[in-house]
């Protein structure tokens, strides 16, 4: 099953789990699986139209899904999906 890496700022919505395994065949299915299991995550990843919010980037391997097939990008058992949030700390 594909693995989704959860970034630190969003782990408060996944019981502090840093990874999530999914049977989803596309990024859209994988994110739906994730946000159904951890429903507090949904509003932080998806907007009202179920599109991925623009302060979050989703990568499949080392490629931004916006340069692939967006949320229709296919994933396989060996795929690592990364959710990359903006962080601003520097102090």
């Amino acid at each position: 099953m594909a693995q989704i890496i959860i970034p630190t700022p969003l782990r408060k919505f996944t019981n502090n789990e840093s990874t999530f395994t999914t049977k989803g065949a596309t990024v859209k299915e994988a994110i739906a699986d994730l946000t159904t299991t951890h429903n507090g995550l949904a509003k932080h990843i998806l907007d009202d139209q179920n599109n991925i919010r623009t302060f979050i980037r989703i990568y499949v391997g080392d490629d931004d899904i916006n340069t692939l097939e967006k949320d229709a990008t296919a994933i396989s058992d060996s795929t690592v999906v990364s959710i990359i949030p903006a962080i601003a700390g520097g102090c």
């Binding site: 302060f55 980037r57 949030p85 601003a88 102090c91």
Partner: peptide, 25 residues
């Protein structure tokens, strides 16, 4: 190009709110 818009206030806390490992910076 990477982040067209910022996250809403509060979702990603600052270091003073969320902490940071001292050696990380």
């Amino acid at each position: 190009d990477l982040f067209p818009t910022p996250p809403p206030p509060g979702l990603v806390p600052s270091c003073s709110e969320g902490g940071v490992l001292g050696v990380l910076p």
